[in-house]
Design a protein around this nucleic acid. Structure first.
Lengths: 106, 106
DNA sequence: ATTTTGTGAAACCGAATGGTTTCATATATA
DNA sequence: TATATATGAAACCATTCGGTTTCACAAAAT
């Protein structure tokens, strides 16, 4: 069973859950209210997110608060690094093009 | 059939393919040489990548060069934005902590 | 003490996924 | 022209995925 951050964010519901948890820690019931699926479906998503350690559980009585483990999100950013260079180059070129347009206008 | 960039990068082979294409455009056979799977399996991955428009085909005789469509990768970066704020805050706090440590040392 | 509430887990299901093997087709090459 | 090469697509298969329904259990409320 592959379980990494990339597989975790492949599902739109899980991405939405992560978006919610970016704002504040929440309980499964609290999260489920934001979706049309059952609480159990959300629970399964939380299990996956927990397994790849992008969320952490905090027990508080019979409630469980899930909160985002931001470090895992940075792994995505790190992977993007190799591509970021490319689109920055494109921007540089765009800058040159714009500079030339400006120059020729005068 | 869901087909978006997040689903595209969920598979490790597809991520590796994108990594290769970040360096240069390549043919299916050229790409397949880098993996242990069959050429046909790579072809299926390329189909998926093409469907969500993160790669583009360029026909050249009987060869097809696949090249990266960097714009799609930026969508991931854009989604990360909401989380980037968070880990930057952490860094700021870390800076404060480090500054305090330094101060107390004197 | 009994009932309600919050939660995870298991059983089940249809659909999607990733892979292989086989085939079809178009373009080079001999 | 006959053969080799580059490629996509279809058929098939075991596994995974995302969802629901049902159940188990601990903690809070009555």
């Amino acid at each position: 069973m592959r379980r990494d951050i990339f597989q975790a964010i492949a599902d739109p519901t899980r991405r939405a859950i992560l978006g919610l948890l970016a704002l504040q820690a929440m309980t499964p019931n609290g999260i489920a209210e934001h979706f049309q699926t059952t609480r159990q479906a959300v629970s399964k998503h939380l299990r996956i997110l927990t397994e790849c350690e992008v969320v952490k559980q905090e027990y508080q009585g019979r409630e469980i608060y899930y909160h985002l483990e931001i470090q895992r999100m940075k792994e995505i950013d790190k992977w993007l690094e190799q591509f970021r260079k490319l689109w920055e180059i494109r921007f540089d070129q765009l800058d040159k093009v714009l500079a030339n347009l400006k120059k020729n206008k005068r």
